[in-house]
Design a protein around this nucleic acid. Structure first.
Lengths: 345, 345
DNA sequence: TTTGAAAACGAAAACGATTTCGATTTAACC
DNA sequence: GGTTAAATCGAAATCGTTTTCGTTTTCAAA
């Protein structure tokens, strides 16, 4: 049904070769024939068969993205950033969701390799502690860029924020407003982000002569950063201590859960306990009190990730090697209601 | 670099033909050769060249999805539903975002056609009032399924909810709890959803002997269903009337904006004004008061949409025609804080 | 031993575009 | 007119797989 080069060539009594070259402005086609071919191509609305082009050129103008969770304010912003940049360069974006599962992530990466995308962007699942699947992809010369949830041991470009610094600033903010006993909801054990945010929290305490107390750090049993986790941890903390006056929480969603629980328990936020979250979800601006948080630039991260990947795709196409880069994006502390105490202490 | 059939064939001193057939369990290959080929293929980790397969089979095992906005609770749920079903059938999903713009939507559909995806799922942009691009795709025998934001005049399968009924129920709920003067924030003029929700609102009023008053319907100038829109409309309504005691609002996000504005104005929700939203965003459960709303099954809509598209892709592959279907998914009214009045009137 | 059918294999033509390289035509100059 | 260089063109190989259809081999029945 669709028009092929062959048909165009036949109608004009020229060879397929010439038709092809005419459309691509080769020097060895006369202006006259070029004009004729182009005119007819336009008239018939000729579209080169993508599959044939891919087979010859060995590229598909498509990249794959693997993320833990699509329905997620931060990640959907990243996706938007990726798509917007990719579109500018004529690339399409395949999205896969690992559901924070290592097995799925592995399977999906293999699927992308099989479908021969030109490159892969990946943000690791919480469950991933083996990186052979990624190393294997890199070994097969497939450009791979990791973003946000990365593995330090894998030798590829990485687009991240400085979680340690950001957590440090968040915690310092609590100290600055006068909190004396600061807890931390740190989320799951594994991903580097959790670890780094924990480190930043601890370092801020130590730098300000507040001793670090492991019993003030609440883990997440469920494995995900959920609203429920915030509620449960808040209730637990309420039982354990009555003198905690500040919490640095891993994620805004968890913070919202915590605030909800505290409100039910009659704890006033921020006067009894001040809270700083992380990520700047939209929700944090509209809840009462609004949540002080770290703005995590998802959209920019998506853009930067694609552009880095694009650079590497181009490089490897022309056979040059580019040294993997680690790009750190800026975050910002947003001071809002959950840390604006109205009574002096 | 990657292994090809030819290499396998050479190593085993058989023809490419036999190797290919062995891997696909053709009857005219002896069990012995089959075993040998399969073993070697596994050993060398042979992956068929996807581009070559696509060229031969004329299918790419890839579908395209065009949605107005990725960062959106409902749509990201739809995406998740699509991806999860697609994966089961071995399909990859390309996501494109129209930003509610007709021009982008058109360009993107053309891009997908050029890249020869096997089918397209699309939810229309608010700005789209010309459907030739979609009709053209259908004419070229590309399976297309529309979901949520559809155009009635296009002859293809559609996966929707019954916006009229849902809006009717939402409005009726306000009537049931005793509201006497019910306003409506209807969002942008154009998309069918807005129209239908408005119709449901109006019908509910008329069925319950409450006269419909156009001045109680607030449009959206900005063109999108935003938090800001909710605030502005709420402020305007507060100026215009002091006896409105219920509002049916097009979208939860707008409802949240409205609630925020009302709280700043000292209007009590739900006692002064009861509010019903639409879509059941996660946010609606955690805000105070929690918002009564219509649960819109995004995940199921994604699944259903893909499965319908899959059916049509299969059908057209084998040359049969399937009559376009319109599937209506169930919605549910969720009664929450924003309609639970604590004082009698 | 011949015959015939069934089993096993492979040559070759697709799929549609790209690109190399050789062939032909045209134009230009002496 | 003859020679040469430049301008145009096209045959054919290639990308890797699939599939048709004809060929060879095998083996049991006659």
């Amino acid at each position: 049904m669709p028009i092929t080069l062959k048909e165009i060539a036949e109608k004009l009594n020229i060879s397929v070769t010439t038709a092809s070259k005419a459309l691509k402005d080769y020097a060895d086609v006369s202006p006259k024939t070029k004009a004729k071919v182009k005119a007819l191509a336009k008239e018939l609305n000729y579209q080169p068969n993508a599959f044939a082009v891919h087979l010859r050129t060995k590229e598909s103008k498509t990249i794959g993205v693997i993320i833990p969770e699509v329905v997620h304010h931060f990640f959907s912003n990243v996706i938007r950033g990726i798509i917007s940049e990719a579109e500018k360069k004529g690339y399409l974006v395949i999205i896969l969701q690992s559901n924070e599962s290592y097995d799925m992530e592995k399977k999906q990466l293999e699927l992308l390799m099989k479908q021969q995308v030109d490159g892969v962007l990946i943000s690791l699942a919480n469950g991933t502690n083996n990186f052979d699947h990624i190393k294997k992809a890199i070994q097969q010369n497939k450009p791979v860029v990791m973003f946000d949830k990365i593995a330090k041991v894998v030798n590829c470009s990485k687009i991240i924020i400085n979680d340690i610094d950001a957590a440090y600033n968040a915690t310092k903010h609590l100290i600055d407003i006068g909190c004396k006993k600061i807890a931390h909801f740190r989320g799951p054990l594994l991903p580097q982000n959790s670890i780094d945010r924990f480190i930043g929290y601890k370092r801020a305490l130590e730098d300000h002569d507040m001793k670090y107390d492991p019993s003030l750090v609440y883990l997440c049993e469920c494995g995900d950063n959920s609203f429920e986790e915030g509620k449960i941890n808040a209730q637990q903390l309420h039982q354990d201590f009555n003198d905690v006056d500040g919490i640095f929480i891993n994620t805004d969603l968890v913070a919202i859960g915590a605030i909800t629980a505290f409100q039910e328990l009659g704890v006033n936020i921020p006067n009894d306990i001040a809270i700083v979250g992380f990520s700047n979800w939209f929700m944090s601006t509209v809840i009462t009190p609004s949540i002080s948080t770290i703005d995590q630039p998802g959209y920019a991260m998506g853009q930067t990730s694609f552009n880095q990947l694009y650079k590497e795709i181009k490089a490897q196409k022309y056979g040059d090697y580019v040294e993997p880069e680690t790009i750190t994006l800026k975050t910002e502390l947003l001071k809002r209601g959950s840390t604006q105490k109205t009574i002096c202490n």
